[in-house]
Lab assay of single mutants.
Amino acid sequence: TEYKLVVVGAGGVGKSALTIQLIQNHFVDEYDPTIEDSYRKQVVIDGETCLLDILDTAGQEEYSAMRDQYMRTGEGFLCVFAINNTKSFEDIHQYREQIKRVKDSDDVPMVLVGNKCDLAARTVESRQAQDLARSYGIPYIETSAKTRQGVEDAFYTLVREIRQH
Rank of each mutant, 00 (worst) to 15 (best):
T1K: 09
T1L: 08
T1C: 10
T1F: 08
T1I: 13
Y3C: 10
Y3P: 06
Y3W: 06
Y3K: 11
K4P: 05
K4Q: 11
L5R: 00
L5F: 12
L5A: 04
V6K: 03
V6N: 06
V6Y: 07
V8D: 00
V8G: 02
V8A: 04
V8I: 08
G9N: 01
A10W: 08
A10H: 05
G11I: 13
G11S: 12
G12Y: 12
V13I: 15
G14H: 00
G14V: 00
K15V: 00
K15W: 00
K15F: 01
S16W: 00
A17R: 03
L18M: 14
L18H: 02
T19Q: 03
T19F: 00
T19P: 03
T19D: 02
I20A: 04
I20D: 01
I20V: 12
I20G: 04
I20S: 03
I20Y: 04
I20N: 01
Q21M: 11
Q21D: 14
L22G: 10
I23S: 07
I23H: 11
Q24H: 04
Q24W: 05
Q24N: 13
N25P: 08
N25D: 10
N25I: 05
H26M: 14
H26F: 15
F27T: 02
F27A: 02
F27I: 02
F27P: 01
F27C: 03
V28Q: 05
V28L: 07
D29I: 04
D29T: 06
E30C: 06
E30F: 03
Y31E: 02
D32H: 02
P33I: 03
P33R: 05
P33K: 04
P33W: 02
P33M: 03
P33D: 03
T34W: 00
I35C: 04
E36A: 01
E36I: 01
E36R: 00
E36C: 01
S38M: 05
S38P: 01
S38Q: 07
S38W: 02
Y39F: 07
Y39D: 00
R40H: 04
R40A: 05
K41H: 11
Q42C: 08
Q42D: 09
Q42E: 11
V43G: 09
V43C: 13
V43E: 07
V44Y: 10
V44N: 14
V44K: 06
V44H: 08
I45W: 07
I45V: 12
I45R: 05
D46Y: 06
G47L: 06
G47Y: 04
G47R: 06
G47I: 05
E48R: 08
E48N: 12
T49P: 10
T49V: 11
T49G: 08
C50V: 11
C50Y: 12
C50H: 06
C50E: 05
L52H: 00
L52N: 03
D53M: 03
I54E: 00
I54R: 00
D56H: 00
D56F: 00
D56A: 00
T57R: 02
T57H: 04
A58C: 06
A58T: 11
A58W: 02
A58R: 11
G59E: 03
Q60D: 14
Q60A: 14
E61Y: 15
E61A: 14
E61T: 14
E62N: 15
E62Y: 15
E62I: 14
E62W: 15
Y63S: 13
S64R: 08
S64Y: 11
S64P: 13
S64A: 07
A65D: 09
M66G: 13
M66Q: 13
M66E: 11
R67D: 15
R67C: 14
R67G: 14
R67S: 15
D68E: 09
D68C: 05
D68W: 04
D68T: 07
D68H: 07
Q69F: 09
Y70F: 14
Y70K: 05
M71P: 07
R72G: 13
R72M: 08
R72Y: 10
T73L: 11
G74Y: 10
E75M: 13
E75C: 11
E75H: 11
E75T: 12
G76H: 02
G76Q: 01
F77D: 01
F77A: 03
F77H: 03
F77N: 01
V80W: 01
V80P: 02
V80A: 04
V80M: 13
F81K: 01
A82Q: 15
A82Y: 02
I83D: 10
I83S: 13
N84Q: 10
N84M: 11
N84V: 07
N84H: 14
N84S: 12
N85C: 11
N85D: 15
T86F: 12
T86D: 12
K87V: 08
S88H: 06
S88N: 06
S88W: 08
S88F: 08
S88A: 13
F89C: 07
F89K: 04
E90A: 11
E90D: 13
E90I: 08
D91T: 12
D91F: 14
D91G: 10
D91N: 13
D91K: 15
D91A: 15
H93R: 14
H93C: 14
H93M: 15
Q94S: 13
Y95K: 06
Y95M: 15
Y95V: 15
R96F: 14
R96V: 15
R96K: 10
E97C: 06
E97A: 11
Q98A: 13
Q98E: 14
I99L: 10
I99Y: 02
I99V: 07
K100C: 10
K100M: 07
K100W: 05
K100Y: 05
R101N: 10
K103Q: 05
K103L: 12
K103W: 09
K103F: 14
K103C: 12
K103P: 03
D104V: 09
S105N: 04
S105G: 11
S105D: 06
D106R: 09
D106F: 13
D107M: 13
D107W: 10
V108R: 03
V108E: 03
V108D: 02
P109L: 07
P109D: 02
P109M: 06
M110R: 01
M110L: 07
V111L: 06
V111P: 01
L112P: 01
L112A: 04
L112K: 00
L112Y: 05
V113N: 02
V113G: 02
G114K: 01
G114F: 02
G114I: 03
N115K: 00
K116V: 14
K116P: 00
K116Q: 14
K116Y: 14
K116N: 15
C117W: 05
C117T: 08
D118M: 01
L119W: 13
L119G: 15
A121H: 10
A121M: 09
A121W: 05
R122S: 13
R122W: 08
R122L: 11
R122I: 08
T123K: 15
T123S: 12
V124H: 09
E125Y: 08
E125A: 09
S126R: 10
S126P: 07
R127C: 10
R127W: 11
Q128H: 10
A129G: 11
A129T: 06
A129C: 07
Q130I: 08
Q130L: 11
Q130N: 08
D131M: 08
D131N: 07
D131S: 08
L132Q: 05
L132C: 06
L132K: 06
A133Q: 04
R134G: 05
R134L: 07
R134M: 08
S135Y: 11
S135L: 09
Y136F: 13
Y136N: 06
G137S: 06
G137F: 03
I138F: 06
I138P: 02
I138R: 03
P139E: 08
P139W: 03
P139R: 07
Y140N: 01
Y140V: 08
I141P: 01
I141Y: 07
E142Q: 07
E142M: 04
E142R: 03
E142W: 02
E142I: 04
E142H: 03
T143A: 13
T143W: 00
T143S: 08
S144P: 00
S144E: 14
A145F: 02
A145H: 00
K146A: 14
K146T: 14
K146E: 14
K146G: 15
T147G: 13
T147R: 08
T147L: 09
T147Q: 11
R148P: 12
R148L: 14
Q149S: 08
Q149N: 09
Q149D: 10
E152H: 07
E152Q: 08
E152A: 09
D153S: 07
D153I: 06
A154S: 05
A154G: 05
A154K: 01
F155K: 00
F155R: 00
F155W: 12
Y156S: 14
Y156G: 12
Y156K: 15
Y156L: 13
T157G: 05
T157K: 14
T157M: 10
T157V: 11
L158S: 02
L158R: 01
V159W: 10
V159S: 03
R160N: 12
R160F: 05
E161N: 09
E161W: 11
Q164I: 04
Q164N: 07
Q164F: 04
Q164Y: 03
Q164A: 08
H165P: 12
